[in-house]
Design a protein around this nucleic acid. Structure first.
Length: 490
DNA sequence: TTTTGAGTTGTTCGA
DNA sequence: GTCGAACAACTCAAA
């Protein structure tokens, strides 16, 4: 039997349209699928608690899908990084060490994987590929996650795009994504299997069982992804342009986490629906591409504003305000509803994400990095590229950013997109008996109305942390101050 | 080469 | 009540 090829599975948890798997099968060698848990390699952006929950579920599904095809999923854990200044032989890095051990144990002579684009992993994987090749191992990487490779997309002056519309126009014009391949019926197994950890040994699930809401809301894995796409194409996609803006209704695709973990690919989406149906939806896929493009070309933007003048922005630092925002206790119903939906389900409707982000960075004037970090820990679809783009956009310091004067008014937005208050009633039940439209601004209700709805402001539901009008004006003034400071420097 | 127009997601104010 | 203007600064691509 010829030597096996290691299929290094990372964030490509699917069997259909998987280029590394297809290439391994075409070789005609046995395939040895392996997942190496190496969160330290992703610091300071190692997967958060909600992501780990999803990963556990998805790995379990993938493992079962592999077994059904005569294969298996081998699970390994990379050793923690060596203590600083420690003695002994310096490893080449925990992930590479784990791969080398497997190569030795299995006699495999090749490693195939699908690429990731986070800065820390690009650096790591480049080193691993070189090191493997230097020792005579065939090492090949493939594109499974994006329609276009970030390194290939440049404007006419050879620089990366910083505006979405020209970026997407360029990508679309040069795009001809191959049709996705179906999942293979069988996967050739090696003569013997190396040892594997049990999935539970990775300890990805929470020790305190806060994950009931997640389990109720989601079905991680390739099949769950396909079912969500099917549901979306059967209805919501038809009215996507308008319905996607209404929180609390299933008008969006809910595919973000499936995409993040590679349970479904943008190529599959591209080819899934007739052109006339999918125009706006595919533009959203384009934003995902743009986010990866920006992260690849501007790797520091996970922590620093793309537009340097924002380093001078006068943020405030009220930790009590941050905590109230995180827990959905700001006193602004739509904001609190969104933050509670996030805490409960690991997901938040996209329009509400914009609203809670605007509230944090403009009304509370807390640094966008604080919001990005909270989303990172709590979202099941936490994606470094999309999260970074979204927060920088909201703060006005990123590419194609919202103009500084664009401050969402959560009351106006609520009246517009949640006119009956259904979304707020669902996630902030203590307000459920307030009539619309007062449900979006309970502080404007008179005493009798509040009493009738069983609400004691400041007790059963908080008074607003800040005055919306005054904090908006203070934010605009802060931007003026930042601009003024910039001008005086030149 | 230089100029010009356009660019995801909003709010407020005054006519 | 409706409507248009104002609210920056900068990138990119087409003319």
């Amino acid at each position: 039997m010829p030597p096996s090829v290691l299929l290094w599975i990372r964030q490509d948890l699917r069997l259909a349209d998987n280029p590394a798997l297809s290439a391994a099968l075409e070789r005609g060698s046995p395939v040895l699928p392996v997942f190496v848990w190496a969160p330290d390699d992703e610091e300071p952006w190692a997967p958060g608690a909600a992501s780990c929950w999803w990963l556990h579920q998805s790995l379990a599904r993938l493992s079962a899908d592999l077994v059904a095809r005569g294969s298996r999923l081998i699970i390994r854990r990379a050793a923690a990084p060596a203590a600083q200044g420690g003695s002994g032989t310096a490893g080449e890095g925990p992930a590479l060490d784990a791969l080398r051990t497997l190569l030795r144990d299995s006699g495999a002579r090749a490693v195939y994987w699908n690429r990731r684009y986070e800065p820390a992993l690009v650096a790591r994987d480049t080193k691993i590929k070189q090191a493997l090749r230097d020792s005579g191992i065939e090492a090949e990487s493939f594109n499974a996650a994006l329609l276009a490779e970030p390194r290939d997309v440049r404007n006419q002056s050879g620089r990366p795009f910083q505006v979405f519309t020209p970026f997407w126009k360029h990508v679309r014009a040069t795009l001809d994504p191959p049709h996705p391949t179906p999942a293979p019926a069988t996967i050739a197994a090696p003569a013997s299997w190396p040892t594997s950890l049990a999935l539970d040994e990775l300890a990805l699930r929470p020790t305190i069982r806060w994950d009931a809401g997640l389990a109720e809301a989601w079905q991680p894995g390739e099949r769950g992804a396909a079912q969500n796409l099917e549901r979306f194409l059967a209805g919501p996609v038809r009215d996507y342009d308008d319905a996607r803006n209404v929180p609390g209704t299933p008008g969006t695709s809910r595919l973000s986490a499936h995409l993040h973990f590679g349970e479904i690919s943008p190529r599959q989406l591209w080819h899934a629906a007739p052109e006339w149906q999918q125009r706006q939806f595919v533009t959203e896929v384009g934003w995902r591409e743009f986010a990866h493009h920006l992260l690849f070309h501007f790797p520091r933007t996970t922590d620093e504003p793309l537009r340097g003048e924002f380093l001078k922005f006068p943020w405030l630092g009220d930790r009590a305000h941050l905590a109230a925002w995180q827990r959905g206790r700001t006193g602004v119903p739509l904001v609190d509803a969104g933050m509670r939906e996030l805490w409960s389900t690991g997901w938040m409707h996209n329009r509400v994400r914009m609203i809670v982000a605007s509230y944090l960075v403009k009304n509370l004037r807390l640094p966008w990095q604080d919001g990005a970090r909270w989303f990172w820990d709590t979202l099941v679809d936490a994606d470094l590229a999309s999260n970074t783009l979204g927060w920088q956009w909201s703060a006005g310091c990123g590419a194609d950013a919202a103009p500084y004067f664009r401050v969402f008014n959560p009351v106006t937005q609520g009246v517009k997109f949640d006119p009956e208050g259904a979304y707020v009633r669902r996630w902030v039940p203590e307000l459920a008996r307030l009539p619309a439209p007062l449900i979006h601004s309970p502080w404007e209700a008179d005493a009798a109305t509040l009493r009738g709805a069983g609400i004691a402001l400041g007790d059963s539901y908080p008074r607003p942390l800040v005055d919306l009008k005054a904090s908006r004006e203070a934010a605009l003034a802060a931007y003026q101050q930042m601009r003024g400071g910039a001008a005086s420097n030149t």
